[in-house]
Protein backbone atom coordinates (compact mmCIF):
# COMPACT_ATOMS: atom_id res chain seq x y z
CA UNK A 1 0.00 0.00 0.00
CA UNK A 2 1.50 3.38 -0.97
CA UNK A 3 2.47 5.67 1.91
CA UNK A 4 -0.12 8.24 0.91
CA UNK A 5 -3.09 5.88 0.99
CA UNK A 6 -1.83 4.33 4.23
CA UNK A 7 -1.64 7.77 5.78
CA UNK A 8 -5.24 8.69 4.94
CA UNK A 9 -6.56 5.36 6.17
CA UNK A 10 -4.76 5.51 9.50
CA UNK A 11 -5.20 9.26 10.06
CA UNK A 12 -8.35 9.29 12.26
CA UNK A 13 -7.07 6.53 14.51
CA UNK A 14 -3.60 8.01 14.73
CA UNK A 15 -4.93 11.50 15.43
CA UNK A 16 -7.10 10.19 18.28
CA UNK A 17 -4.19 8.30 19.85
CA UNK A 18 -1.80 11.21 19.37
CA UNK A 19 -4.11 13.82 20.87
CA UNK A 20 -5.48 11.79 23.78
CA UNK A 21 -2.71 9.36 24.67
CA UNK A 22 0.62 10.76 23.48
CA UNK A 23 -0.03 14.43 24.30
CA UNK A 24 -1.44 13.69 27.78
CA UNK A 25 1.78 11.83 28.56
CA UNK A 26 3.69 14.98 27.58
CA UNK A 27 1.24 17.02 29.64
CA UNK A 28 1.81 14.74 32.65
CA UNK A 29 5.59 15.02 32.26
CA UNK A 30 5.29 18.81 32.08
CA UNK A 31 2.97 19.11 35.08
CA UNK A 32 5.22 16.91 37.19
CA UNK A 33 7.96 19.55 36.98
CA UNK A 34 5.82 22.16 38.71
CA UNK A 35 4.44 22.56 42.18
CA UNK A 36 1.54 24.59 43.47
CA UNK A 37 2.15 28.13 44.63
CA UNK A 38 3.09 28.64 48.21
CA UNK A 39 0.69 30.49 50.42
CA UNK A 40 1.01 34.25 50.20
CA UNK A 41 2.18 35.64 53.52
CA UNK A 42 1.66 39.18 54.63
CA UNK A 43 2.78 41.04 57.69
CA UNK A 44 0.17 42.85 59.68
CA UNK A 45 0.71 45.14 62.57
CA UNK A 46 -1.43 44.50 65.57
CA UNK A 47 -1.69 47.45 67.87
CA UNK A 48 -3.17 46.85 71.29
CA UNK A 49 -3.05 48.69 74.57
CA UNK A 50 0.50 47.41 75.25
CA UNK A 51 2.13 48.58 72.01
CA UNK A 52 2.32 47.19 68.52
CA UNK A 53 3.63 43.86 67.28
CA UNK A 54 3.96 42.57 63.75
CA UNK A 55 2.51 39.21 62.88
CA UNK A 56 2.80 37.10 59.75
CA UNK A 57 -0.49 35.67 58.46
CA UNK A 58 -1.67 33.82 55.38
CA UNK A 59 -3.46 36.00 52.88
CA UNK A 60 -6.09 33.48 51.76
CA UNK A 61 -7.58 35.71 49.09
CA UNK A 62 -4.28 36.47 47.43
CA UNK A 63 -3.28 32.78 47.62
CA UNK A 64 -6.50 31.68 45.95
CA UNK A 65 -6.17 34.38 43.29
CA UNK A 66 -2.59 33.41 42.51
CA UNK A 67 -3.45 29.72 42.31
CA UNK A 68 -6.44 30.55 40.11
CA UNK A 69 -4.33 32.65 37.75
CA UNK A 70 -1.61 30.02 37.34
CA UNK A 71 -3.12 26.59 38.05
CA UNK A 72 0.10 24.92 36.94
CA UNK A 73 2.00 26.48 39.85
CA UNK A 74 5.65 27.37 39.97
CA UNK A 75 8.59 25.52 38.48
CA UNK A 76 10.05 22.92 40.81
CA UNK A 77 12.28 20.82 38.57
CA UNK A 78 12.50 17.23 39.68
CA UNK A 79 11.75 18.23 43.28
CA UNK A 80 8.34 16.56 43.36
CA UNK A 81 9.84 13.23 42.35
CA UNK A 82 12.10 13.10 45.37
CA UNK A 83 9.73 14.49 48.01
CA UNK A 84 8.11 12.46 50.78
CA UNK A 85 5.09 11.47 48.69
CA UNK A 86 7.16 9.89 45.93
CA UNK A 87 10.69 8.51 45.87
CA UNK A 88 11.40 10.07 49.27
CA UNK A 89 15.18 9.83 48.86
CA UNK A 90 15.89 11.80 52.02
CA UNK A 91 13.62 9.64 54.18
CA UNK A 92 14.95 6.40 52.70
CA UNK A 93 18.59 7.30 53.27
CA UNK A 94 17.71 8.52 56.78
CA UNK A 95 16.02 5.18 57.49
CA UNK A 96 19.04 3.34 56.03
CA UNK A 97 21.61 5.18 58.12
CA UNK A 98 19.66 4.79 61.37
CA UNK A 99 18.54 1.22 60.70
CA UNK A 100 18.75 -1.36 63.45
CA UNK A 101 17.79 -4.32 61.34
CA UNK A 102 16.82 -4.97 57.73
CA UNK A 103 13.23 -5.62 58.80
CA UNK A 104 13.07 -2.33 60.65
CA UNK A 105 14.38 -0.51 57.59
CA UNK A 106 11.82 -2.17 55.33
CA UNK A 107 9.04 -1.37 57.80
CA UNK A 108 10.11 2.27 57.78
CA UNK A 109 10.16 2.38 53.97
CA UNK A 110 6.75 0.71 53.78
CA UNK A 111 5.28 3.67 55.66
CA UNK A 112 6.10 5.95 52.74
CA UNK A 113 3.05 6.23 50.46
CA UNK A 114 4.80 5.55 47.15
CA UNK A 115 6.66 2.45 48.34
CA UNK A 116 3.52 1.14 50.05
CA UNK A 117 1.58 1.44 46.79
CA UNK A 118 4.45 -0.08 44.83
CA UNK A 119 4.65 -3.04 47.23
CA UNK A 120 0.93 -3.73 46.94
CA UNK A 121 0.85 -3.35 43.15
CA UNK A 122 3.77 -5.76 42.68
CA UNK A 123 2.45 -8.28 45.22
CA UNK A 124 -0.96 -8.20 43.60
CA UNK A 125 0.50 -8.61 40.10
CA UNK A 126 2.90 -11.42 40.91
CA UNK A 127 0.58 -13.40 43.19
CA UNK A 128 -2.60 -13.15 41.10
CA UNK A 129 -1.03 -13.98 37.74
CA UNK A 130 0.45 -17.45 38.43
CA UNK A 131 -2.47 -18.54 40.64
CA UNK A 132 -5.11 -17.62 38.09
CA UNK A 133 -3.19 -19.39 35.33
CA UNK A 134 -3.12 -22.65 37.32
CA UNK A 135 -6.75 -22.30 38.37
CA UNK A 136 -7.83 -21.47 34.82
CA UNK A 137 -6.03 -24.54 33.50
CA UNK A 138 -7.69 -26.76 36.11
CA UNK A 139 -11.15 -25.41 35.29
CA UNK A 140 -10.50 -25.82 31.55
CA UNK A 141 -9.44 -29.45 31.99
CA UNK A 142 -12.52 -30.10 34.14
CA UNK A 143 -14.99 -28.42 31.78
CA UNK A 144 -13.43 -30.19 28.80
CA UNK A 145 -14.41 -33.54 30.34
CA UNK A 146 -18.06 -32.56 30.87
CA UNK A 147 -20.85 -33.97 28.68
CA UNK A 148 -21.55 -31.67 25.73
CA UNK A 149 -24.92 -30.44 27.05
CA UNK A 150 -23.32 -28.95 30.20
CA UNK A 151 -20.44 -27.15 28.50
CA UNK A 152 -22.39 -24.14 27.17
CA UNK A 153 -24.07 -23.19 30.44
CA UNK A 154 -20.84 -23.73 32.38
CA UNK A 155 -18.95 -21.39 30.08
CA UNK A 156 -21.79 -18.86 30.37
CA UNK A 157 -21.57 -18.82 34.17
CA UNK A 158 -17.76 -18.79 34.09
CA UNK A 159 -17.69 -15.64 31.97
CA UNK A 160 -19.65 -13.62 34.55
CA UNK A 161 -16.82 -12.65 36.95
CA UNK A 162 -14.70 -11.44 34.05
CA UNK A 163 -17.33 -9.52 32.07
CA UNK A 164 -18.72 -7.77 35.15
CA UNK A 165 -17.68 -4.16 35.66
CA UNK A 166 -14.70 -4.34 38.05
CA UNK A 167 -16.18 -1.76 40.41
CA UNK A 168 -19.51 -3.60 40.54
CA UNK A 169 -17.88 -7.01 40.98
CA UNK A 170 -15.82 -5.75 43.88
CA UNK A 171 -18.85 -4.07 45.48
CA UNK A 172 -20.83 -7.31 45.30
CA UNK A 173 -18.04 -9.17 47.10
CA UNK A 174 -17.50 -6.26 49.49
CA UNK A 175 -21.10 -6.49 50.70
CA UNK A 176 -20.78 -10.23 51.18
CA UNK A 177 -17.59 -10.03 53.25
CA UNK A 178 -19.00 -7.21 55.39
CA UNK A 179 -19.04 -8.22 59.06
CA UNK A 180 -22.82 -8.50 58.71
CA UNK A 181 -22.76 -10.03 55.23
CA UNK A 182 -22.96 -13.75 54.57
CA UNK A 183 -19.22 -14.51 54.20
CA UNK A 184 -18.11 -12.19 56.96
CA UNK A 185 -20.64 -13.73 59.34
CA UNK A 186 -19.69 -17.28 58.35
CA UNK A 187 -16.01 -16.57 58.94
CA UNK A 188 -16.83 -15.17 62.37
CA UNK A 189 -18.65 -18.40 63.22
CA UNK A 190 -15.89 -20.63 61.82
CA UNK A 191 -13.12 -18.85 63.71
CA UNK A 192 -15.38 -18.26 66.71
CA UNK A 193 -14.40 -14.61 66.85
CA UNK A 194 -17.31 -12.13 66.76
CA UNK A 195 -14.87 -9.24 66.25
CA UNK A 196 -13.29 -10.69 63.11
CA UNK A 197 -13.49 -8.29 60.19
CA UNK A 198 -11.73 -8.67 56.85
CA UNK A 199 -11.57 -4.89 56.51
CA UNK A 200 -9.72 -4.27 59.75
CA UNK A 201 -6.14 -5.35 59.17
CA UNK A 202 -3.87 -4.60 56.21
CA UNK A 203 -2.91 -8.23 55.65
CA UNK A 204 -6.53 -9.44 55.57
CA UNK A 205 -7.40 -6.60 53.18
CA UNK A 206 -4.52 -7.58 50.89
CA UNK A 207 -5.70 -11.18 50.88
CA UNK A 208 -9.28 -10.13 50.10
CA UNK A 209 -8.14 -7.97 47.19
CA UNK A 210 -5.94 -10.74 45.80
CA UNK A 211 -8.79 -13.25 46.07
CA UNK A 212 -10.99 -10.80 44.19
CA UNK A 213 -8.29 -10.43 41.52
CA UNK A 214 -8.05 -14.19 41.06
CA UNK A 215 -11.83 -14.58 41.00
CA UNK A 216 -12.28 -11.93 38.34
CA UNK A 217 -9.44 -13.00 36.01
CA UNK A 218 -9.56 -16.81 36.18
CA UNK A 219 -12.32 -16.91 33.51
CA UNK A 220 -9.98 -15.27 31.01
CA UNK A 221 -7.31 -17.94 31.53
CA UNK A 222 -10.00 -20.62 31.48
CA UNK A 223 -11.50 -19.52 28.15
CA UNK A 224 -8.12 -19.26 26.44
CA UNK A 225 -6.98 -22.67 27.74
CA UNK A 226 -10.31 -24.24 26.87
CA UNK A 227 -10.01 -23.06 23.27
CA UNK A 228 -6.44 -24.38 23.22
CA UNK A 229 -7.57 -27.80 24.46
CA UNK A 230 -9.87 -28.16 21.44
CA UNK A 231 -6.79 -28.14 19.17
CA UNK A 232 -4.61 -30.65 21.06
CA UNK A 233 -3.43 -33.17 18.41
CA UNK A 234 -5.43 -36.37 18.83
CA UNK A 235 -2.79 -38.56 17.16
CA UNK A 236 -0.05 -37.56 19.56
CA UNK A 237 -2.30 -38.32 22.53
CA UNK A 238 -3.17 -41.78 21.18
CA UNK A 239 0.44 -42.52 20.35
CA UNK A 240 1.41 -41.56 23.91
CA UNK A 241 -1.26 -43.89 25.26
CA UNK A 242 -0.09 -46.77 23.07
CA UNK A 243 3.38 -46.18 24.49
CA UNK A 244 1.91 -46.64 27.94
CA UNK A 245 1.78 -43.05 29.19
CA UNK A 246 -0.54 -42.60 32.15
CA UNK A 247 -3.20 -39.87 32.10
CA UNK A 248 -1.03 -37.55 34.14
CA UNK A 249 1.96 -38.15 31.84
CA UNK A 250 -0.18 -37.41 28.80
CA UNK A 251 -1.22 -34.08 30.33
CA UNK A 252 2.33 -33.31 31.42
CA UNK A 253 4.12 -34.21 28.17
CA UNK A 254 1.51 -33.61 25.44
CA UNK A 255 -1.21 -31.20 26.59
CA UNK A 256 0.88 -28.76 28.60
CA UNK A 257 3.60 -28.27 25.95
CA UNK A 258 0.82 -27.66 23.44
CA UNK A 259 -0.63 -24.95 25.73
CA UNK A 260 2.72 -23.26 26.51
CA UNK A 261 2.34 -20.40 23.97
CA UNK A 262 -1.04 -19.64 25.54
CA UNK A 263 0.56 -19.41 28.99
CA UNK A 264 2.91 -16.75 27.63
CA UNK A 265 -0.01 -14.86 26.11
CA UNK A 266 -2.10 -14.95 29.31
CA UNK A 267 0.88 -13.95 31.45
CA UNK A 268 1.53 -10.93 29.25
CA UNK A 269 -2.09 -9.72 29.26
CA UNK A 270 -2.53 -10.35 32.99
CA UNK A 271 0.72 -8.63 33.96
CA UNK A 272 -0.46 -5.54 32.09
CA UNK A 273 -3.97 -5.65 33.57
CA UNK A 274 -3.01 -6.50 37.14
CA UNK A 275 -0.33 -3.82 37.24
CA UNK A 276 -3.01 -1.16 36.86
CA UNK A 277 -5.24 -2.57 39.63
CA UNK A 278 -7.50 0.27 40.72
CA UNK A 279 -11.26 -0.30 40.87
CA UNK A 280 -11.19 -3.08 43.52
CA UNK A 281 -9.46 -0.74 45.96
CA UNK A 282 -12.24 1.83 45.48
CA UNK A 283 -14.96 -0.85 45.58
CA UNK A 284 -13.61 -2.44 48.76
CA UNK A 285 -13.05 1.05 50.31
CA UNK A 286 -9.58 -0.28 51.09
CA UNK A 287 -7.50 2.89 50.68
CA UNK A 288 -6.60 2.90 54.36
CA UNK A 289 -5.00 -0.55 54.25
CA UNK A 290 -3.94 -1.02 50.65
CA UNK A 291 -3.14 1.40 47.88
CA UNK A 292 -1.92 0.83 44.36
CA UNK A 293 -0.06 3.23 42.08
CA UNK A 294 -3.33 4.00 40.26
CA UNK A 295 -5.28 4.55 43.46
CA UNK A 296 -2.80 7.05 44.92
CA UNK A 297 -3.06 9.06 41.69
CA UNK A 298 -6.85 8.96 42.05
CA UNK A 299 -6.67 10.09 45.67
CA UNK A 300 -4.39 12.99 44.75
CA UNK A 301 -6.84 14.14 42.09
CA UNK A 302 -9.91 13.57 44.25
CA UNK A 303 -8.80 15.25 47.47
CA UNK A 304 -10.29 18.52 48.72
CA UNK A 305 -7.55 20.34 46.85
CA UNK A 306 -6.54 18.44 43.72
CA UNK A 307 -2.78 17.92 43.78
CA UNK A 308 -2.14 17.81 40.03
CA UNK A 309 1.62 17.98 40.34
CA UNK A 310 1.89 15.15 42.80
CA UNK A 311 -0.49 13.01 40.70
CA UNK A 312 1.56 13.82 37.61
CA UNK A 313 4.83 12.75 39.23
CA UNK A 314 3.28 9.43 40.37
CA UNK A 315 1.88 8.96 36.87
CA UNK A 316 5.32 9.42 35.32
CA UNK A 317 6.80 6.86 37.74
CA UNK A 318 3.96 4.45 36.88
CA UNK A 319 4.55 4.88 33.16
CA UNK A 320 8.23 4.08 33.71
CA UNK A 321 7.12 0.95 35.60
CA UNK A 322 4.91 -0.13 32.69
CA UNK A 323 7.79 0.42 30.28
CA UNK A 324 10.09 -1.79 32.37
CA UNK A 325 7.42 -4.49 32.59
CA UNK A 326 6.90 -4.44 28.82
CA UNK A 327 10.54 -4.37 27.70
CA UNK A 328 10.99 -8.17 27.47
CA UNK A 329 7.77 -8.47 25.45
CA UNK A 330 8.78 -5.74 23.05
CA UNK A 331 12.23 -7.27 22.51
CA UNK A 332 10.66 -10.66 21.84
CA UNK A 333 8.13 -9.27 19.35
CA UNK A 334 10.93 -7.35 17.62
CA UNK A 335 12.95 -10.56 17.17
CA UNK A 336 9.90 -12.46 15.88
CA UNK A 337 9.19 -9.68 13.42
CA UNK A 338 12.75 -9.67 12.10
CA UNK A 339 12.74 -13.45 11.78
CA UNK A 340 9.53 -13.30 9.74
CA UNK A 341 10.99 -10.67 7.42
CA UNK A 342 14.25 -12.51 6.90
Amino acid sequence: MPHRTFFWFILPSLAAMFLFIALPIVSVAFQSLFIEHEQVLIEVENCGPFGCETETVVDNEATAAKREAEPLGRFNGLGTYFDRGHLATAEVSEAWSTRESLGGFLGEVMNLPFYRAMAFTLTYTFVCTPVLILLGLAVALGVNGLPRAFKGPTIFVSLLPMIITPLIGSLILFWMIDAEGIFGKTLQVIFDDPELSLKASPSLTWITLIVYGIWSSTPFAFVVFYAGLQTVPEDTLEAAMVDGASRWERIRYVVIPHLMPLVVFITLIQLMDNFRVFEPIIGFSAQANASSLSSIIYDDLRGDIARFNSAAATSMLTIIGVAILLTPVLIRTWRDFNRKRA
Partner: peptide, 20 residues
Protein backbone atom coordinates in the same frame (compact mmCIF):
# COMPACT_ATOMS: atom_id res chain seq x y z
CA UNK B 1 4.27 -1.74 18.99
CA UNK B 2 3.43 1.79 20.15
CA UNK B 3 -0.22 0.74 20.33
CA UNK B 4 0.79 -2.17 22.58
CA UNK B 5 2.59 0.19 24.96
CA UNK B 6 -0.43 2.51 24.97
CA UNK B 7 -2.67 -0.48 25.71
CA UNK B 8 -0.70 -1.18 28.89
CA UNK B 9 -0.93 2.41 30.17
CA UNK B 10 -3.08 2.71 33.33
CA UNK B 11 -6.00 4.95 32.34
CA UNK B 12 -5.76 7.07 35.46
CA UNK B 13 -2.24 8.24 34.49
CA UNK B 14 -3.70 9.65 31.28
CA UNK B 15 -6.59 11.24 33.17
CA UNK B 16 -4.17 13.20 35.33
CA UNK B 17 -2.79 14.60 32.08
CA UNK B 18 -6.22 15.65 30.81
CA UNK B 19 -7.61 17.47 33.83
CA UNK B 20 -5.70 20.76 33.82
Amino acid sequence: MIALVFRAMPHITLVSGYLL
